[in-house]
């Protein structure tokens, strides 16, 4: 057998493992990775003692969460949930409305000035880098505590992304239909209204609904920085360590998000389904 190993090793050396250079680079890569891992673990203080203490603390918290209880101020909790959903709805509605003209501006079909479009896209991307919570904190300072700051934060954070998606939807439009309108003697505006809008509107609506779903999740936490909604309630209860109420709120949040997902998913399917049934 060993004789055949030698023959094969001579004939196909690569089959018996990597070359020295490959082994070296691989080792180097692993060493660098492990060094980085050790360094960050040390830096962020991942000591067994700290982890153990934290986990036992977490265990105590989880035990105290059971059974979840609405507490005495359950009206406030319900109000917070309603506020979160309302913030998400209004924020999404406003950004979806404003994003339509912006989308047309950003779309290559409509605006042909490349430089302008390029810079608009960059600005869109820049907005995307800022988390909603940062916007919320800034708006709390600007217009005061309360849900209005949350609505504005959702509006600002989403508008760029939605406008970008809308621009893409408009670019994907079939040109034949608007060309048809113009060929039939329609104006440029009529071409937009009858040629482009019917094609993109269901897509835009579906995307807005999708954003509504994700905003319901984020609206639930904007209250942590004082921008209204259920987040405020949860932060306060964590501060005073009413863990059973925290658990109740988390469960309520999960249920609310689930219900909104379900409703919006149904409507979205209907929209896309309707689009599918339209003769092309």
């Amino acid at each position: 057998m060993s004789a055949s190993i030698e023959t094969w090793r001579a004939r196909l050396p690569a089959a018996f493992g990597a070359t020295r250079a490959q082994v070296m680079t691989r080792r180097l890569g692993w060493t660098a990775f492990l060094l980085w891992l050790a360094a960050v673990l040390w830096w962020f203080d991942f000591t067994p003692v700290r982890l153990w203490n934290g986990l036992s603390g977490l265990g105590v918290i989880i035990v105290m969460m059971i059974p979840p209880s609405p507490g005495e101020l359950w009206v406030e909790i319900l109000k917070g949930i309603a506020e979160s959903v309302a913030m998400a709805f209004l924020g999404t509605f406003l950004s979806a409305t404003v994003a339509i003209p912006l989308g047309f501006l950003g779309a290559g079909n409509v605006v042909t000035a490349t430089l302008l479009r390029f810079s608009i896209r960059r600005v869109f991307d820049g907005f995307r880098g800022v988390d909603q919570l940062i916007w919320a904190l800034a708006f709390v300072r600007a217009v005061g505590l309360g849900p209005l700051a949350g609505v504005l934060a959702i509006f600002t954070a989403d508008i760029a992304v939605l406008a970008k998606l809308y621009a893409e939807a408009i670019e994907n439009v079939e040109r034949r239909q608007s060309e048809g309108v113009i060929a039939a003697g329609g104006s440029k505006l009529a071409a937009l209204r009858f040629g482009v809008l019917p094609q993109v509107l269901p897509v835009m609506l579906a995307q807005a609904l999708y954003f509504f779903e994700s905003n319901t999740r984020s609206a639930a936490i904007l209250g942590v920085v004082g921008a209204g909604g259920i987040g405020l309630q949860i932060a306060e209860r964590i501060r005073v360590r009413h863990w059973d109420e925290v658990a109740f709120i988390i469960i309520l949040m999960i249920i609310t998000v689930g219900v909104i997902d379900w409703i919006s998913g149904k409507v979205r399917r209907k929209l896309i389904g309707e689009r599918g049934r339209q003769p092309v």
């Binding site: 057998m1 060993s2 094969w8 090793r9 196909l12 089959a15």
Partner: peptide, 22 residues
């Protein structure tokens, strides 16, 4: 192991596929 690799190459070689092993 090297023995297993040699064995696999032998099996491939039987069907004229050793050159495609990699």
């Amino acid at each position: 192991t090297a023995a297993e690799r040699a064995m696999a190459l032998e099996a491939l070689d039987r069907f004229d596929l050793a050159d495609q092993a990699l």
